[in-house]
Nucleic acid binder design. Sequence first.
DNA 1: TAGTACATGTAACAGGTTACATGATTGA
DNA 2: TCAATCATGTAACCTGTTACATGTACTA
Lengths: 184, 184
Amino acid sequence: MALTHAILALLVNCPQSGYDLTKNFEESVGCFWKATHQQIYRELAKLEAQGWVQPTTVLQEGRPDKKVYGITELGQQKLATWVAAPCDTMAIKEELLVKVFVGALVSTPVIQQQLLQHRQIHTHQLAHYRQIEAVEFQNFHALTLESKLQYLVLRRGIRYETDWIGWCDEALALLHEETEGKEK
Amino acid sequence: MALTHAILALLVNCPQSGYDLTKNFEESVGCFWKATHQQIYRELAKLEAQGWVQPTTVLQEGRPDKKVYGITELGQQKLATWVAAPCDTMAIKEELLVKVFVGALVSTPVIQQQLLQHRQIHTHQLAHYRQIEAVEFQNFHALTLESKLQYLVLRRGIRYETDWIGWCDEALALLHEETEGKEK
DNA sequence: TAGTACATGTAACAGGTTACATGATTGA
DNA sequence: TCAATCATGTAACCTGTTACATGTACTA
């Protein structure tokens, strides 16, 4: 299972709690993985049982205690083995594209609205990534290899969102042409 | 569940059997949805029970009989309602990006090899889409709205694969620079 | 005082994957 | 005769989602 390795990857980067992992999956590393807190806590329990991660209870003032997980030697070995193994690309399951595919079933404005909505979602996401880029990856040549690799992952996110916006524009232009042509 | 609607979408386009649907998910519509035959047969049984699709047994010579499913009036209504409803973007879960993220854990050539492998997968996929484009969507302006919308979906696939190849090249160039720099 | 952030969990269910199962025909 | 294609299914298991559950502290 790859969620296992996504969690281990974040823990290599920085030991943290299930709560922290949840936040990270929502925010910074959303460009390569998503998981809910329930999945994460379930997975952490398994990983702990296998000895791939180790928790330390951190007492906090004014806040609930934290179980901060760190990756173990064994965990790092397993992760490294997995990194070297071949892997498939993600299966695409994009509702919007199903909707466009059967778009002729509904009126054109319905599809146009969906496209505009998605264009906005991708624009927001892109702005978010651009902000991370500006804050964490300025002065690119001064970065460590580790940071450069992480920047590459963010670059993938930036390209992805940019390309979606481009496609939305392409689709909207085509639909605009179609409706214009009919009105004339 | 969106698999339901992906199946309905294919049946609107053309009535077909579970086997045909499986082929279609593997080949032509892989750019927006994936499903295994087990999922499809299970889903078709549910859809039939709900009266959203209707099977006709087609006898064939030299081949097993087919259960060809068509979408019902009710099915079309449900599909149209779903098309108009708002929807989220797909959650990205890309193993390769997890591997790049923790790439510093292994030697650089391991990551370079993964990138090359993925570059090849995306190149193949792009060639496949380009072939569909050449066969089914030549003479674009003569197409019906239905076909134009389906072409848009394929365009998304083409852009996606093209963008991935671009990113792989970007990543490989960066890693090349890094290793060159160290050797000197 | 109501909502949000912090922090961790359980339980039930839905969706997806893998293995197993069958059987005809066609082509190498 | 062996593998591939056509064609449909069952069963078991793993993953992912949604709802429920609890409790503190801070802020508007």
